Every structure is written in structure tokens, then in C-alpha cells.
Simulated scan of single mutants.
Amino acid sequence: MSLLDAFNTLKQSGFDAKKDKDYNPYKEIPDGEYLVSLDGVTHNAKNDRDFLMISFMVVQGEYEGQKESVFPSLATKKANGDPMPNSVIARGIAEIQLIGEAVGAPIPDSCFAHDNETDAYEAIVPVLSQAKNKVLKLTKKTTPNKRNPDYPYKNYEFEKAEQPRALDIEGENDPFKDSKNNVEVNGSDFPF
């Protein structure tokens, strides 16, 4: 896509910089089951807290091309410095392991054998990154957040999905098998 194409897309969307406060073409996907690909895994930091971000892209259906990111936490302390309950940390570990299994990149136990989440995230990123573009099923379910109703809880389930087959273009399926090895092309061969 060129810069001009992107500009035209923006204008066609009805965006007006004089009236609008922001532009975000990525609307959150609603609850449901989706076929997604693992789009990326990053270890980031914000406001002295680091986190793992695992991104997925919907690969078929009405929301094709939309992204969804999950942020499994391995933080051992709350923002106020109190210890994080083991059940919360265990949930983050389980979510990471479920994603790893669903994309065929099991997370070794050694990734969690660290004294802090920073080192664990650094160990997990290369393992999951090997499965980038692998396809899996993602089911999203939101539940109400009584303390902050504008931000419902997002719950995810991850399952293995059949991977697309690579095209076999060797041998009999090779569309160029009958062509000559040394083909010469000159200017008169082009239609322009």
C-alpha cells in the first residue's frame, strides 16, 4: 500500500482532523471463536513495569486482519508493592503454556525458573517467536468488571488448529518444469 492509498483510505473512512480526536482503524474483536495466527511476541516496559505482549491476527471471517493482544502477567508484586497471589501468577504461567502448546512451541519449565518476571519474559520471547505465523483457535469471552465497568475482563481460550499446507511445487506440480533453463527476455517481450 502506498502513502496515497493510505491517505485515501483515511479520507474514505470519514476522518476529519478538525473534528475527530483520534483515529484507530482497529476495533476490538467481539466475543467469539476466531482462527488467528501468532503475529508477534514482545517484552515491553511502561512506567517501571515490564510486561509480555502476545499479538494475534484474525486470518478469516468478518474480522480478518484485526489484531488482538494478550498480556499474561508474571509479576510477583502488585503495583503497591504487596506480593501477588500465587494463583494470579499461576494463571499467567498457564496462559503462556497454553499458547505455546496451541502453536506447537511448548514453553520449557526453565523459562519460569527465574527470580523475576523480566528474566522469564526474556526467556519466553525467543521460544514463542519461533512459532510466528502459526495458526491457532482463539476464543474470547468478556465478563463484567464491577470495579471498573468500562474495562471488562477478557478471558481467552487457545486451541491447536490445523496448519495450512505448504504448496508442493516440486516435480510434477512444478508449473515451470517444461520451461527452458536459460530463457532470454528482451524489450519486445514486454507489453509496455
Rank of each mutant, 00 (worst) to 15 (best):
I89K: 05
A94Y: 11
A102E: 04
H114F: 14
D115T: 14
A90S: 12
A113Q: 15
A131I: 04
P106Q: 05
A120C: 11
I99G: 09
M84I: 02
T76P: 00
G92H: 04
N145A: 04
Q97T: 12
I107H: 03
L98W: 06
G81A: 05
M84Q: 15
K141C: 01
Q97A: 07
P83V: 07
K78T: 13
D82V: 03
N145F: 05
G104K: 06
I99L: 11
A105W: 00
E95T: 13
T139K: 12
D119T: 13
N86E: 12
T143N: 03
K78D: 07
L128D: 09
I93R: 13
S110K: 10
I124N: 14
V135A: 02
Y121D: 12
K134A: 15
A94K: 15
K140R: 15
A79I: 12
C111F: 02
K140I: 13
P108A: 09
V127T: 09
V127N: 08
V127A: 08
L128P: 08
G92Y: 02
G81I: 05
Q97G: 00
A120F: 03
K140Q: 11
G92R: 01
P83G: 02
V103M: 09
A102V: 02
A102Y: 04
K134I: 08
N80S: 06
L128G: 09
I93M: 13
V88I: 13
P144Y: 05
P126V: 02
E101F: 02
K132N: 09
A102H: 06
I96T: 10
P126W: 00
Q97K: 15
L128I: 09
Q130T: 15
P83D: 14
I124L: 14
T76I: 05
G100K: 02
D119H: 10
N133D: 13
V127C: 08
L98H: 10
D115S: 15
G104Q: 07
P108V: 08
S87H: 02
Q130C: 05
I93C: 03
N133S: 12
N116E: 14
V125S: 11
S129Y: 02
K134V: 08
P108I: 08
G92S: 06
N80G: 02
V88C: 01
L98T: 02
N86Y: 04
C111I: 03
A123V: 06
I89P: 01
I96F: 11
K137G: 05
A123I: 05
M84A: 07
A123H: 07
E117G: 12
P144F: 04
T118A: 14
K78Q: 14
V88T: 15
A113H: 07
S87K: 04
E101M: 08
V88P: 01
A102I: 01
A123T: 08
T76K: 14
E117W: 09
A102D: 06
P126F: 00
A79Q: 13
A123N: 11
